[in-house]
Nucleic acid binder design. Structure first.
Length: 500
DNA sequence: TGTCACTTAAACACTC
DNA sequence: GGAGTGTTTAAGTGAC
């Protein structure tokens, strides 16, 4: 068996760092019990579940869905959770707030203990005690974030970890958190491997920074600070972090030419295009921190920060909002469309542009391919019955285009330009490259002159763009929301009428 | 059994 | 030259 076959056999989703939702969002959403080194069962087995958490769960039906935020499902083929499970998750999301959004009044006004006692515990709930989703969600309450004085306030005080949103002076590290308010089990958890993927850790680190961009070193630092586990862990995790940064499209490299005199490497920021995905991932994980990342930073964003409009202002979107958000994403990610990306050096964003709003908690984005893939899918549409069309939310992880799948079989699968430029990449992606790696000393600079970011550039097809816009517009129309396009059209119409 | 979504390790190139 | 950084490949794990 040659290496090609071998890797094909073994690697499976080794292109896992697909920065698409599969990587960014699906990861956690699907639960910790999946793969890799993060075994939720293992993790939970190392921890004692606080009794209060067991009691909290009895409040599951007390919150209106709206407060819990949308139930964001994964793509149909993958995340088909049983209805009961969904309900459970939905309810659990109500536990101290969907994604940490519930204010204290909602969350803790009534004693959870009392409530739970009032309700008693049924047999079915006993069964639910073993629900990993529940464990996962509740344990993650330890990661409570949020605005001081709000939901996070009370919880954050008990949080063993951090207050991401919080001020720098706030106790954020393990040492400071091992206060009297921290239970032993919580302290233990600090020394355990966090049940978060590296991509989310990185995301949190970056989002925690005032400038929304960090050098690798600072990312290390943040992770070390908040997850002391890594301080004693083998240094391989740093490699994993770098690996993630490199491979995950969610993260973008920003040249630190401006202002930064010394220091190696670049700054890394979250690609706004994928930011909702990450947020969604956190939300799906019911990670209360998601809320922190759904709100604009307390401090005014710096020049390199994502514009505030990129933040989700309200994570408790209604379903219709979600559909609309999908369309907005489509609009924003259409080829040739202006990318509201703070990392782009193309120029400042026009914040006044209504259509630049990027907001989405949309499950429909939770497919495996970014807008680029969507473009591909729509342009190549077709042949595959499994290929999702735009109106059903695009390809899910299991519904990706066969070619995409093929690509993914290689670790470079997600490089979007494989078929647009750098024709040799297909061969490499297809493992058809028998030549030894790094054959040429200058190969690196030659092969990747502009890094992965350059490879993301896709030749825009205007007609496709229009199709996407139309499709998005239809979605918005169905959702009862006007797109900027529509608005523009209407305003143009009205202008015409006025002229007449 | 194959696929997927990861983690981990390692090799290598580049920059400081 | 060494350390840090960035990229890429390979392999392993566990759930679905």
């Amino acid at each position: 068996m040659n290496s090609c076959e071998k890797s094909k056999k073994n690697r499976g989703g080794s292109g896992a760092h697909e920065p698409t939702l599969a990587f960014c969002a699906a990861a956690v959403a699907r639960g910790y019990g999946r793969g890799g080194g993060y075994d939720w069962l293992k993790w939970t087995s190392e921890h004692t579940i606080p009794a209060t958490l067991l009691l909290y769960r009895h409040r599951v039906h007390e919150y209106p869905p709206g407060l819990m935020g949308p139930i964001i499902g994964m793509s149909p083929d993958k995340k088909a959770e049983t209805p009961g499970l969904q309900e459970e998750r939905m309810g659990l999301r109500g536990v101290c707030g969907g994604a940490g959004t519930l204010p204290e009044a909602e969350c803790g006004a009534a004693s959870p203990l009392a409530t739970s006692l009032d309700r008693g515990s049924g047999g079915s709930e006993d069964e639910e005690l073993t629900n990993l989703n529940w464990l996962h969600e509740n344990l993650l309450q330890n990661f409570t974030l949020g605005t001081p004085g709000e939901a996070g306030g009370a919880q954050a005080s008990a949080s063993p970890l951090f207050d991401i949103e919080g001020d720098p002076g706030a106790p954020q590290n393990a040492s400071s958190s091992s206060s009297s308010s921290t239970s032993p089990s919580q302290r233990d958890s600090l020394k355990s491997k966090p049940p978060l993927s590296f991509s989310l850790l990185i995301y949190m680190a970056i989002e925690h920074s005032p400038s929304k961009s960090l050098p690798v070193k600072d990312i290390y630092g943040w992770i070390l600070q908040h997850f002391p586990y890594f301080s004693s862990a083998p240094t391989g995790w740093k490699n994993s972090v770098r690996h993630n940064l490199s491979l995950n499209k969610c993260f973008r490299k920003v040249e630190r030419s401006l202002g930064k005199v010394n220091g190696k490497g670049s700054l890394w920021c979250v690609d706004p295009e994928y930011r909702p995905n990450l947020i969604q991932a956190l939300k799906k994980q019911h990670f209360p921190a998601a809320h922190a990342f759904c709100t604009p930073p307390a401090s005014p964003p710096s020049g390199s920060s994502p514009p505030s409009h990129l933040f989700l202002q309200d994570c408790s979107l209604k379903e219709s909002d979600i559909d609309a958000a999908t369309a907005m994403m489509l609009l924003n990610s259409a080829p040739g469309h202006h990318h509201a990306n703070p990392c782009d050096s193309d120029g400042p964003l026009d914040l006044s542009r209504p259509d630049s709003v990027l907001v989405s908690c949309d499950p429909k984005q939770d497919h495996n391919y970014s807008s680029l893939a969507l473009q591909r899918c729509s342009s190549r549409s077709s042949s595959s019955s499994s290929l999702s069309s735009l109106d059903d939310g695009g390809p899910s992880p299991g519904q990706v285009h066969p070619r995409a799948r093929q690509r993914r079989a290689g670790s470079e699968g997600f490089h979007s330009d494989e078929d647009s430029d750098l024709g040799d990449r297909d061969e490499r992606g297809g493992r058809a490259r028998p030549a030894p790696r790094r054959s040429s000393p200058s190969s690196s600079s030659v092969r990747r002159p502009a890094g992965k970011r350059a490879r993301r550039e896709v030749i825009a097809k205007p007609e496709l763009d229009e199709e996407l816009k139309e499709a998005a517009g239809s979605l918005l129309h169905l959702a009862g929301i006007r797109t900027s396009m529509e608005i523009n059209k209407r305003s143009a119409k009205s202008k015409k009428l006025n002229r007449k």
